[in-house]
């Protein structure tokens, strides 16, 4: 039994090593268009207000229902969650997104040179356009 486990483990290690070796690691940067596409793929009925790009890996979109659509780059894909403002804490320029979701770990991010941080805590602009 142990030899079978080692055999499977060895085969898996070889494959993983090979993947990294030929450069299959990809990372994307979230931009306005990507976030917009992800939002519509997530829910075509979402009415959103303002998009705030954080670092390359994070963006937040304020929604007309006072929620926030959070985008996080994961390798070459984007994961999206709707979160409430209760799950966001502001510590100076650092924002903590606490989702309490094992599949979408809590994380902190810094909104570099971005004056729009306060937007996350503002009341929604119902007439807002779907742009950044």
């Amino acid at each position: 039994m142990l030899s079978q486990i080692l055999f499977v483990l060895g085969a898996a290690s070889a494959v993983i090593g090979f993947g990294f070796l030929i450069g299959l690691s990809q990372n994307i940067t979230i931009d306005n268009e990507l976030a917009r596409q992800a939002a519509y793929n997530y829910d075509s009925n979402i009415i959103f207000d303002k998009l705030i790009i954080s670092d390359d890996k994070t963006a937040a979109l304020t929604l007309s229902n006072k929620g926030i659509l959070l985008f996080k780059a994961i390798g070459s894909r984007v994961s999206v969650r709707i979160i409430s403002k209760n799950n966001i804490e502001k510590h100076g320029e650092v924002i903590l997104f606490a989702l309490h979701d094992l599949g979408f770990p809590d994380f902190k991010t810094r909104f570099h040179n971005n004056n729009n941080i306060e937007t996350l805590f503002e009341e929604p602009n119902l007439g807002g356009a779907a742009n950044a």
């Binding site: 039994m1 486990i5 499977v8 483990l9 898996a12 993983i16 993947g19 299959l24 990809q26």
Partner: peptide, 21 residues
């Protein structure tokens, strides 16, 4: 293919076999 994604998939496969045994 995304190396980290494949890494995660293969680890899940290995774990499945170990727990399976």
């Amino acid at each position: 293919y995304e190396a980290k994604d494949s890494f995660a998939s293969l680890m899940m496969g290995v774990g499945n076999q170990i727990i399976g045994f």
